[in-house]
């Protein structure tokens, strides 16, 4: 299925309070909590439904389309909040 879309999860760790809502309601079980913070355990399974982003009470997660598969395996979890969010997309 060559036209499968891939997504990235931009997580603002400082905002996340580990409430587990996104993890529970992700239809593809992409997300997990680690040390009380959400992270994309299986980013490639994400179908971009945005349920996590819409449901998050803390605006701590954002789903962005990503052209290639998560080749570099960059762990999105470690996001330095001192740098404004958009800087991560640069």
């Amino acid at each position: 299925m060559s036209d499968k879309k891939f997504y990235r999860h931009l997580i603002r760790e400082r905002y996340c309070k580990g409430c587990n809502i996104c993890v529970a309601y992700c239809p593809k079980k992409v997300l997990e909590l680690k040390d009380g913070k959400v992270f994309a355990a299986r980013p490639d399974d994400c179908i971009g439904c945005l349920m996590c982003e819409l449901r998050c009470p803390d605006f701590a997660i954002e789903v962005k389309p990503r052209d290639a598969a998560a080749s570099d395996g960059a762990d999105e979890r470690v996001v330095d909040l001192q740098v404004p969010p958009e800087a991560h997309d640069a």
Binding site: K17, C56, D58, F59, P85
Partner: peptide
């Protein structure tokens, strides 16, 4: 910058609501 966050005073976040409180979701809506 995400459109949603552009409506927030980001220097005031994270907000005070408890983990899992629905008020954040409603404010986002």
């Amino acid at each position: 910058m995400s459109e949603t966050l552009s409506y927030f005073r980001q220097d005031r976040l994270p907000h005070i609501w408890c983990p899992g409180c629905g008020h954040g979701t409603i404010t986002g809506a």
